[in-house]
């Protein structure tokens, strides 16, 4: 029995948990900050995008690993 698809699915699914939680926390904090101080939304935008990218990178690693498992 070939378990390769299962491995790829598990890699992506488990690897998505952490970044998902992290992105949620980051986004909620950014929204909170904008809600408290709407004028600061321009200042918050760039660090928010950077943090989003850094957090999301973990998920992308999982994606790349699962793609490599699947297609090589």
């Amino acid at each position: 029995m070939d378990l390769t698809p299962l491995a790829a699915g598990l890699a992506m699914g488990l690897g998505g948990i952490g970044p998902g939680i992290g992105l949620g926390i980051g986004f909620s904090k950014a929204m909170e900050a904008i809600g408290r101080n709407p004028e600061a939304s321009g200042t918050i935008f760039v660090p928010y995008i950077l943090g989003l990218a850094l957090t999301e990178a973990i998920g992308i690693y999982a994606l790349v690993v699962s793609l490599i498992i699947l297609f090589t």
């Binding site: 990218a53 850094l54 999301e56 990178a57 992308i60 690693y61 994606l63 790349v64 793609l67």
Partner: peptide, 16 residues
């Protein structure tokens, strides 16, 4: 590694 993997992963995953 993180810069290259991020861009590659996103665009490639988008294509897929």
């Amino acid at each position: 590694i993180s810069l290259s993997m991020r861009l590659f992963g996103n665009v490639f995953a988008g294509e897929v």
